[in-house]
Write a protein that binds this DNA or RNA. Structure first.
Lengths: 237, 237
DNA sequence: TGCTTGTATTATGCATACAAAATGAACCTA
DNA sequence: TAGGTTCATTTTGTATGCATAATACAAGCA
């Protein structure tokens, strides 16, 4: 007899019988989230004792997680002096945007070739949800769907290597992108660009989508750079 | 009077005030080398006790290194069952080549814009060294310079994010690329392509270089795929 | 005060210890 | 023999301990 009275509360995590979750992976996800969402700001020192206590793990898996995140570029390891959240200097942001541009352009081209009609419709749906949040002036929600669209598009490429690379880079600049939306004029422009991108995708015009994505990201870069110029302290999403 | 008779022996290490080396980083480099050069073949189980003994480190830094390499895609972590050298299935190779193509194309474009004449000359020098090894039929040395050229070109982009990403992907497929050179006809073609690439770079014709690099990599992919079809066991460099 | 120097404290890097899971061999059973 | 069961061994995952480097801070001195 299996009295799993409390099971429902856990079912989310237990139902899936995929490989057992390793502690360091949980820590990686937790920390990445905290960094990406700005809870841990660039430059913050990551004290091992404090963090491991906070996350309920010992220093060993925490340190493993830090190594992993260092490889992703989210954390910087200072020998004998611990780890900090990787600072985001302007040069690096520029470089990351350049690479993301190339990746997203490639993704767009592949998506036009490979994506199913259903998948494209899913993007269209996300697009309109995004528009609705724009109409309400809800920046946070707008941004969430904006990100979803970009990530989804990259996934539609069918190239998992590309997608995972894009996600990794995106994590590095996500916060910067977020605050770069604050100008209403630019926000309106971004919407227009997204509309064009969607049209190109629906028409499966790879070459055009490629160019639109490149420009879109280049425009975004300009904004992000402006923001990094002025604000050193970034607001929370 | 400054009798620094023995100073030179130390100055090398003391002059450079770069951060002290961490053990796990040394292990990362060691393991990556062993994987890239085929000493550890794809699928090989990485026994922590054995490896740490071999490398003269305890399990802790070794495990940290494994996490790092897992993030690079060179190692696969199987929860509760250790780590293996990441297997290279054909699909993944295809995806990696697609991404490398995009990265190298971008690098070529940037290099045409940003590289100094000296830097381009350095590539030219490497090119002729490569040709000499080709003339002698020395595949191993030819390949070494071939790789150097590609890596150098990517560095000339001036985009360190791009370069480090490229290196990471290259590590994943380097061995496969090596054996894909075994056909003499293809080898001759590769030489021709390299000559054209060099010409485009010297002429700083970014658009053309971009296309040449894309094609070059696409051609290479075809070969690599053929090789992966037939040989499961790959010869050592 | 401003600066150095020495010392106490803390944090990091690595090694080791222990618990839980996986592996494998011997044995049984059909 | 094929397949399953039990239990010892091995291996992994995590926690803890210890040595060393970094930091903070107070005393001493100009």
């Amino acid at each position: 007899m299996n009295l799993d009275l409390e099971a429902p509360a856990f079912s989310d995590t237990l139902a899936e019988n995929d490989p057992p979750r390793l502690l360091h992976e949980a820590v990686v996800d937790r920390l990445r989230d905290m960094i990406v969402h700005g809870v841990l700001e660039p430059g913050t020192k990551l004290n091992e004792r404090v963090l491991s206590a906070q996350l309920g793990a010992s220093r060993t898996p925490l340190r493993e997680a830090l190594k992993y995140l260092a490889s992703e570029g989210l954390v910087e390891l200072l020998p004998n002096r611990g780890a900090i959240v990787a600072p985001l200097d302007r040069g690096r942001v520029k470089q990351i945007f350049a690479v993301m541009g190339a990746l997203e352009a490639l993704a767009g081209e592949l998506a036009c070739r490979n994506a199913s009609d259903d998948a494209i419709n899913e993007i269209r749906a996300l697009h309109y949800q995004m528009l609705s949040h724009h109409a309400r002036g809800d920046l946070a929600e707008y941004f969430r769907f904006n990100q979803e669209i970009h990530l989804k598009l990259v996934e539609l490429s069918g190239n998992e290597v590309l997608a995972s690379m894009y996600r990794g880079l995106n994590a590095n600049v996500r916060r910067a992108r977020y605050i770069a939306n604050l100008s209403q004029e630019r926000w309106n422009n971004a919407i227009k660009e997204h509309q064009q991108m969607l049209d190109a995708l629906v028409a499966r015009d790879g070459a055009r989508l490629q160019k639109l994505l490149s420009d879109h990201l280049a425009n975004k870069l300009v904004l992000v750079m402006e923001v990094l110029e002025t604000a050193e302290k970034l607001p929370q999403p």
